[in-house]
Design a protein around this nucleic acid. Structure first.
Lengths: 185, 185
DNA sequence: TGAAAATGGATGAATGTTCATTCATAATAA
DNA sequence: TTATTATGAATGAACATTCATCCATTTTCA
């Protein structure tokens, strides 16, 4: 692909830079100047595409979350347990190839941005736990959706975010532990 | 208790103020000026007791974590499952009376402070998951300690931090889900 | 015993740095 | 040529930290 024939998506570059920098340095250590430098654009360019730093954070979150939703949508399995396992491993695998996404997610979701991010994702990409969990609805224990997500998929995301080294066996063990937590026996 | 007869522990006031403000506004929204104002002391006073803002964050984290350790140490139960449940509910209950502690914990633990905080807690109060889980060691699945903690006690902390409304039944269900995840059948 | 000196803690304005955002200008695309 | 996008210095605000000064308590000494 010839870069001269490709329209540069500066908004995407900016989002990506933000995700990387927040993953590395947290929100407090991520300035718009650093974001712009990392993206290879001018500082003002970020403001051409996003109204504010907060706006950018939400935009980046929605994008990362949507990517997760897309990945999970490719998962399939016969029984609820197999479907869950498939989703779990797909998410873990996807994030493991790009851990900054996981690190970004956990930072947003435990920060003051959490509520706004949740709503932005709801309005835009649909909540992963509601869409992809639809097929699992009756197979899960009676707990609020966000709790089920935290119990079920949270460990996959956090294992990647925290850089936990897991053997293939431990990974399966962890996925199984998550299923035991949320699955109705 | 007469306040004129009590030595004012400004370091404690400062730590408390930090915890509250980080819980409300995150790290980025928590300045040392705001901390000092909240604590009712001068801005420089924080630096009398802590070398830097980072130092203060770690000090506050160690304190909150130590309080959790103390609470969990009061828990007792016959079987591993009962002990786990007892610890789980004690932690949840303790944090539920003071949710800013939970909110502070989840923010530290998903931020760039996580590693340093972990080490500070290790050096000072001992790791909760190692001390209190000692009695449970052989009853838990073979996963790394931090993962076990995340699976086992993390949901209690996060449920409080995120303000999740749970009935008594749902709370028991959640504790049981956590046990299923980590407990060896 | 009481006054003076020493010690430790507290103060908050000053300091220099960093930051989010704006906007006049330049560059690019249609 | 016109419209749109990108630029990066300027702007005013916010920030972490320092430090000269003050205050309170403890220690020393006559």
């Amino acid at each position: 692909m010839s870069s001269s024939a490709t329209k540069v998506d500066r908004a995407a570059l900016v989002r990506r830079a933000l995700v990387e920098l927040v993953a590395e340095n947290g929100f407090r250590g991520t300035s718009m100047t650093a974001v712009a430098d990392r993206a290879g654009v001018a500082t003002g360019t970020a403001y051409v595409h996003y109204q504010s730093k907060d706006d950018l954070v939400l935009g980046a979150y929605v994008e990362v979350k949507a990517a997760l939703a897309a990945i999970a949508a490719t998962a399939s399995g016969g029984s609820p347990r197999e479907l869950f396992n498939s989703i779990w491993l797909a998410i873990h695998s996807h994030l493991a190839t790009d851990p900054v996404q996981a690190q970004f997610l956990v930072q947003v979701e435990s920060s003051p941005y959490a509520v706004a991010a949740h709503e932005a994702a709801l309005g835009s990409a649909g909540l992963l736990e509601e869409d992809q969990f639809a097929a699992l609805k009756n197979a899960l224990v009676a707990l609020p959706p966000l709790v089920l997500w935290d119990l079920g998929m949270g460990p996959a995301i956090r294992a990647v975010a925290f850089g936990t080294e897991l053997t293939a066996g431990a990974l399966d063990e962890l996925a199984a532990a998550c299923w035991r937590a949320v699955g109705r026996s």
